[in-house]
């Protein structure tokens, strides 16, 4: 329950942002929340089961495209269109996951990358339907109790969705199924010997992460009133993978913070230079070489040091095994 309390607490703190930020920064933070949430969902797959995917932007983008196409091409109500978008991504994930999780490691990486490129290729080349490189502009936002066309209004909708989805992820992660994901990561031979169906656990993680990505993909499309091929690109998948790594596998909050931070950093850098890929690359190298545990590994280390200091030498001697 501790994690759920922290999520709600953090949500309440973030609710003051519209009172202290300018329009520009509020927009940036709205997007940061979206990408943070995306990374948090991906942590269930990458962090909990250690399946390195380079194609999860596909589910983010598919949902966005599904929603935008339903509204602009078929004149469907935005709320229903949002449902269609999430169902589209979810449906594709349900069909693809059982096949993808049959392979592991490098083959899994290649398959997810190839799958992502298929969706990206369709969006780029099928110009007559998807708008090609131009994407789909002027996607209207849905009507709500309050005005969503107002930056503050949209921020609060985003915040509510993020809190709700994060709570679901958190509860799911500490459920029996969520815990068994960690078992799959630790040793799948042992897990199958214990009677768990390892492949179905992996598929579940894959689908849940895809659904989370889908929800945020829809939200992102509404925020930008636009969806483009960038939302399906493997660079976005790579950025999300990095968020999980920098944040720390399996901590959930780490990837959220890193995902948000990376988006803010990216937006600020893209505005001024062409050096974003360089920074992304350096972050990869630095985090792998110097911080293999990610941001979240720093917290126990700091905590441990404080304990050592207060309890003296004895604790330091016995406390080291938790390192």
């Amino acid at each position: 329950m501790r994690r759920e309390k922290i999520i709600i607490g953090a949500g309440i703190v973030l609710a003051v942002l519209p009172f202290v930020l300018t329009e520009y920064w509020l927009g940036l933070f709205t997007q940061a929340l979206i990408f943070g949430g995306f990374a948090m969902g991906l942590d269930l797959l990458v962090g909990y089961t250690r399946m390195p995917t380079l194609g999860h932007a596909a589910f983010f983008g598919l949902a966005g495209y599904g929603t935008a196409l339903a509204i602009t091409r078929f004149g469907i109500n935005p709320w229903i269109a949002a449902g269609i978008g999430v169902l589209l991504s979810g449906g594709v994930a349900v069909a693809f996951a059982p096949l993808a999780v049959r392979v592991r490691g490098l083959t899994f990486l290649t398959i997810t990358l190839a799958f992502g490129q298929v969706t990206w290729g369709l969006a780029t080349r099928w110009t007559s339907f998807t708008g090609g490189e131009n994407g789909i502009p002027s996607v209207p936002r849905p009507d709500f109790i309050w005005d969503l066309n107002d930056r503050t209004g949209f921020f609060y909708l985003t915040l509510i969705v993020v809190i709700f989805v994060s709570l679901l992820i958190s509860i799911f992660a500490s459920s029996a199924v969520g815990m068994s994901f960690m078992g799959v990561r630790g040793s799948d031979t042992r897990m199958s010997a214990l009677g768990y169906n390892v492949q179905s656990r992996r598929a579940t993680a894959f689908i849940v992460a895809a659904l989370v990505a889908a929800v945020y993909g829809v939200l992102s499309t509404f925020f930008n009133k636009f969806v483009g091929t960038g939302s399906l690109s493997w660079q976005l998948s790579a950025q999300m993978l990095l968020a999980v790594v920098v944040g720390g596998f399996g901590s959930l909050w780490g990837p959220f913070v890193a995902g948000s931070g990376l988006h803010i950093l990216k937006t600020l850098l893209i505005g001024s230079t062409q050096r974003w890929p360089m920074v992304l690359g350096l972050l990869y190298v630095i985090s792998v070489v110097f911080l293999p545990g990610g941001l979240s590994s720093l917290v126990p280390t700091i905590k441990q040091r404080m304990i050592h200091r207060s309890k003296g030498k004895e604790h330091a001697r016995y406390g080291t095994n938790s390192k």
């Binding site: 250690r50 390195p52 490691g105 490098l106 990486l109 790579a238 993978l241 990095l242 790594v245 062409q274 050096r275 974003w276 890929p277 360089m278 992304l280 690359g281 350096l282 972050l283 990869y284 190298v285 985090s287 792998v288 070489v289 293999p292």
Partner: peptide, 30 residues
């Protein structure tokens, strides 16, 4: 330079060389 990391876990290799790919790509552009 990266022999230790390269010999380590598969996951880290993938991330390291992906990072290098981004760095080289951007350096070539520069």
């Amino acid at each position: 330079v990266f022999s230790t990391t390269l010999m380590g876990s598969r996951f880290n290799q993938v991330l390291l060389t992906l990072g290098l790919a981004f760095i080289f790509n951007n350096s070539i552009l520069a």
